[in-house]
Write a protein that binds this DNA or RNA. Sequence first.
DNA 1: GTTCTAGAAC
DNA 2: GTTCTAGAAC
Length: 435
Amino acid sequence: MDKRPNDIQQTSIIRLGFPSISTSFGEFPIDIAAEIGCEVIKEFLNLHNETDFELILIDNDTKALNAFESKWKEIKNDLDDLKFQIKNGNLLQIKDELGIECRYIVAEITWRMKLNTNHLSKQILNTVGSKFPEEVKRLYPNPGIVGESYPVSIPKDSILHTDEGIEQVIFVVSPNMNPSRSNPVSFNEAKDLLKKTYNSMMNAFLELKNGREYYPVTIKKGNLQVNKPFSTSSSQSSLKRPLPKLGGGGWANVLFPYCQQPEIFPKSEVYCYDDESVIIYDKYPKAKKHLLVIPRKHIDNIEELKKKDLELIRKLKEKGQEMIKKMKQDNPKLDFRMGFHAIQSLKQLHMHVISQDFISPNLKNKKHWNSFTTEFFKDVEEIEKILEEQGFIKFDKAYYENLLKSSVNCHLCNMKSIKNIPNLKEHLKDHWNED
DNA sequence: GTTCTAGAAC
DNA sequence: GTTCTAGAAC
């Protein structure tokens, strides 16, 4: 057979198709489920105004469709109708039936990660073939966590891929309230877990849509339930899936999980977070106090900022100022700067809030030093100014990279060309011990 | 971003 | 001989 041209390729919109979660097999009350689902979607759409995606609820339960429709109408405000659509249909035949291609679809799965326990996953199993459960098992040998998402690629030769254009199924372990099925949870627990499910579903979609991978949490450090009955059973072999490597050049992506799921990190890593930002301790602080204030929304780096992001930058600045105030209470001797590196190493825009002592074993080389003490470091005010006046940011890469190699000068006195880093450290100690 | 290490600098 | 840096690997 010859290759079909991409006949319906006029749009490059990336779509997520998902069913009403937990309302059929999970027996979760439909009205509340619709409320929770719509709230999460609204929050997501408010946070992400990219034009490259659409969300589509596709179900054949008319009660669920109606509940979502009326709830959405009630809360959507001025959000674009196309961004979230509600359709009657079968998730596996969306293109066939409705002419809509969803690159990603969502299906519920039980915490045992078995595909044969609900209608949709059974259908997927039947369509893709018996190799598919093996693949799911290979990727996720451990029990799933309720509320978490587990993306799996659809084989390229499957008709789901060739005919429907589905590239991945995001399996979600959704809460179950049906007492005749395993691990039923109370309504109150289920409410939180359903919200968590929708949130992780959106996070997974966001990562996949942006060409990254989504890494579900497999080992829980927090207080969420872990499904012990299965993991303690002797049938479970000792093979554990190593935590996924962060892909090629993965080190650059380490900040993403803090934005996606700040709640799973211990207090020692994440200081605090809200819907808009997360504040973490720099893993390798270059001074006595060194924090990162990061927007939750994905912004790769400073050059992606536009004038409209001034509002966001000002909010980050406010957060940073609060933190400085707190840290000054602990140690009034400290001075602070907050700002951005002209050229970031790590992906995801992050604002450094760093004390100016620079006394830290992690400050090891010229690059470290120059990145915080030359004009490579851009105070947040400067970024604000550039955005206000110019509307965009573009820094000359070669110039700034050279700056990192320039000679080591003291940031407090006129001592220039300090011979090496150990000498610098001695010099800094002298400043610190003054007065 | 860090770690590792060859070889430059002392 | 030891210290330190710089560049590759991760």
